[in-house]
């Protein structure tokens, strides 16, 4: 039921999701089987007097504790690696590495407010604070196969930018700056949600991320259209 992953690095998160849930399912099924076996085998009608000792085979159940420790360690190693990859490396270093690898990136500033997202673009020159900056409400347009760096803050209360398809989520906090970055690899439109209770209309604080081919994006940013439906019809998107 996971939404399609369109982030170049999203498989790292998906791997941790699979390990953490898969390991839990295995240990859970084994535990349930043992408990059900015991209550069936040691029911009063079949076993009218309790045994004086636990059957030696069942004593081996304590190995579940060791299985748990191994599971924990595997989970911690993969999870910590993925976390370090996304959030411990400084943003500047990630940008520099991307450039060294010949990759390209875009930067967009994000402000969360009750109950809409504002996406601020540097415009064609790629620099914030110049006259060609422009803002979009609830629409985030990004080029395919570019790194996308979102520099986020909030204008009132806490919000949390959540884009399930790129497996990214981070709170926006008034008075602070937080980051989300990812590299979308598939064209299309994807939902953006707010994941931190921000007031009465929290559930309706939604945005759309539109991922375009590089050429279309370059065309769009020269002459930006602000409305998501117009963008979609103009650039002939398939859902």
């Amino acid at each position: 039921m996971l939404p399609v992953n369109i982030s170049a690095d999203g498989h790292l998160i998906d791997l941790v999701l699979k390990i953490s849930i898969g390991g839990g399912i295995v240990i859970g099924i084994v535990s349930f089987a043992i408990v059900l076996y015991m209550i069936f085998k040691f029911r009063r009608s079949k076993n009218p007097f309790p045994l004086q000792d636990v059957p030696p085979l069942l004593k081996k159940v304590i190995y579940i504790d060791f299985a748990m420790i191994i599971f924990d360690l595997v989970l911690l190693v993969t999870s910590s690696y993925a976390w370090a990859y996304f959030y411990i490396r400084p943003i500047d270093k990630i940008k520099k590495e991307a450039l060294q690898k010949g990759e390209k990136y875009v930067e967009v500033n994000v402000i969360g407010r009750q109950f809409f997202w504002t996406f601020i673009y540097p415009g064609e020159d790629g620099k914030f604070g110049t006259s060609d900056d422009f803002k979009l409400a609830n629409v985030l347009v990004v080029p395919k196969n570019y790194y996308v760096f979102l520099k986020m803050t909030s204008g009132d209360t806490l919000h949390s930018l959540f884009i399930p398809n790129v497996r990214m989520k981070y709170d926006t906090i008034p008075g602070r700056t937080t980051y989300v970055w990812f590299k979308p690899t598939a064209e299309g439109q994807y939902d953006i949600a707010c994941a931190e209770l921000c007031g009465s209309m929290h559930y309706s604080m939604k945005g759309i991320m539109i991922v375009m081919e590089e050429e279309k994006y370059k065309e769009w940013i020269k002459n930006p259209i602000y409305n998501s439906e117009d963008i979609i019809s103009m650039y002939e998107f398939k859902r």
């Binding site: 009063r44 059957p55 304590i62």
Partner: peptide, 8 residues
């Protein structure tokens, strides 16, 4: 769980 083992 093992408290159930061998019980009645």
């Amino acid at each position: 769980g093992l408290t159930l083992a061998g019980g009645s």
